[in-house]
Write a protein that binds this DNA or RNA. Sequence first.
DNA 1: GAACCCATGTAACTAGTTACATGATTCA
DNA 2: TGAATCATGTAACTAGTTACATGGGTTC
Lengths: 319, 319
Amino acid sequence: MSLNHAILGLLSREPMTGYEIKKIFRGTPFLHWSGNNNQIYKAFAELLDEGFVAKEVRHREGAPSKNIYTITDAGLEMFHRWLAGAVEEPVFRKQILIRLALADRLKRADLERMLDAYAETVRLQAALAEQELDKCWFANQADSGANRFFGLIRENVLSFYASELEWIRKARAFIAELPDEDGEAHEPMVGNENEKAGSKMNPIIKELRGKRYLHLTGGGSPIGTEQDAIDIIALCVEHDTNAVLLDGGALSDDFVRLRTGLAGAVLQKFVNYNIKAAAVVEHGRQFPERFREMISEYRNGNTFRVFTDPEEAVEWLLG
Amino acid sequence: MSLNHAILGLLSREPMTGYEIKKIFRGTPFLHWSGNNNQIYKAFAELLDEGFVAKEVRHREGAPSKNIYTITDAGLEMFHRWLAGAVEEPVFRKQILIRLALADRLKRADLERMLDAYAETVRLQAALAEQELDKCWFANQADSGANRFFGLIRENVLSFYASELEWIRKARAFIAELPDEDGEAHEPMVGNENEKAGSKMNPIIKELRGKRYLHLTGGGSPIGTEQDAIDIIALCVEHDTNAVLLDGGALSDDFVRLRTGLAGAVLQKFVNYNIKAAAVVEHGRQFPERFREMISEYRNGNTFRVFTDPEEAVEWLLG
DNA sequence: GAACCCATGTAACTAGTTACATGATTCA
DNA sequence: TGAATCATGTAACTAGTTACATGGGTTC
């Protein structure tokens, strides 16, 4: 595990607090650790234990005290030993390859849909990575303006996604040329029919002060796939509105876990179709930290907001 | 976790035993699970519990009985639902990028050495992946000759390594153009001096029936880096021999863990320089399964063998 | 006044790996 | 005879994630 070494590396530049380190991990795509509290604070406890860092507690009037960590000589030596040691091989995980290997007998249309969904995921991921890269800690450092190798790193990361998109193009071309034998026994796709939206999501059109909005009540099932977003948009177009009120139940577990990419994909679609969405959640509901961060990022825009009070939500939606 | 789904996908082709599934996972680079017992057998217990597979115990005379698993209708439906669901985004882990970001102030020579080591690792990994791909279960299946998409998958996997090598080329060109300012404060590389070999590894030249071999006694420290292999080769050249006897202590933990790539890199160097190596380990010593597999693969060749009896080892070395 | 930010930490869980255990068969 | 292959399983561990808990300060 080189997390500890990476922390030492960061501290070799300047002393930092756990929280700062955590934010760096969060905002840097090639630092593949999620940077959750447990990991970071545990790592510091270990490093302190081994004498690789020193802790300075800074008490602040009327504020929680900070722990500022400084690297020790032993820590610096450890870090340099790590740099001199063997480099790990690069690894990847691509579920799409597993699917493709196992979905050998799928119908062409289903394969195309799968690849298209993958392409959208990759594009999203690439955009996210680019954005994060350009505002991450390494992009612009105090001493030398920017890290000497940042350009190389950036290129490496983005080329990963670029070559994936290029491969998708090839794969699409390949399956387009496949003979589609209707008589063949195809593995059926399950649960991809369009009419499920109506039955599953329980949408109601409401009106307030002459303005319409679509209300997805908690009684229906949550937004669990990108298809659900498409269905919502279709309903909006049908009823000539661009405002959607989501009951808390509509936010599925997959939705609030950002790494599934679902929230990103759905909200991107909302942006594309100029649709405003307000979610009303119970007061006590806890979301993953990443999701909360995303919420606060969306606060700047006019696409998505989370409320606890339904009236406030509608107010914003129609305002 | 889609491991369970992947197993269902395999069973949708034909009934299999846990051991067979395990071997498929082991031998297929894009199935990123290691395929260790615990994982596989636990997964089967779960699938059985949920009614997605059925178990048929086949008792065999004088042999351990097999459990042959067959997918049920519920399992098949589950698998198809998974296929229809959202695809996971691709992810990668490249320690080299972290190093590069943190090793900003390293000397040019050290950077070059780091990139060269990385290039070798990637080449090794690529070769391994290619070899595994071509003899893996998906490469040649009974029904359709080969999986329709195997070519696409193969291309994707290999292009990952190819584009990494291409990037290394660019990175090398970039650092070659960097001004090497001698006056600058460089972060020193630690422990990369050549003389450590003599002091650390404790090598002795021995002779039997007029044939020389290099004996690395257990008293020294184990082979922990590629540099150690280079040092050993230098000693062989110096003493005009091509046989090395390694005491068990020389095989470090990193060495026996194949995913570190150390064993592969070291043995590749031995192959290149036509050096025979025999390791003598205590009778009870347990190695990771992957390492044991590698040992048996090397049994075909004339480069590396593991013995428990030192005399046998020397016999083979000089034979 | 609700929600977010800074800041620290812990408890409980999931995923995945290593090592141990067993025992017959096959192969050199 | 010793090691490898086939075959099944468990115990203990490491790495990493989610959720919970706390509390002052800031911002809309």
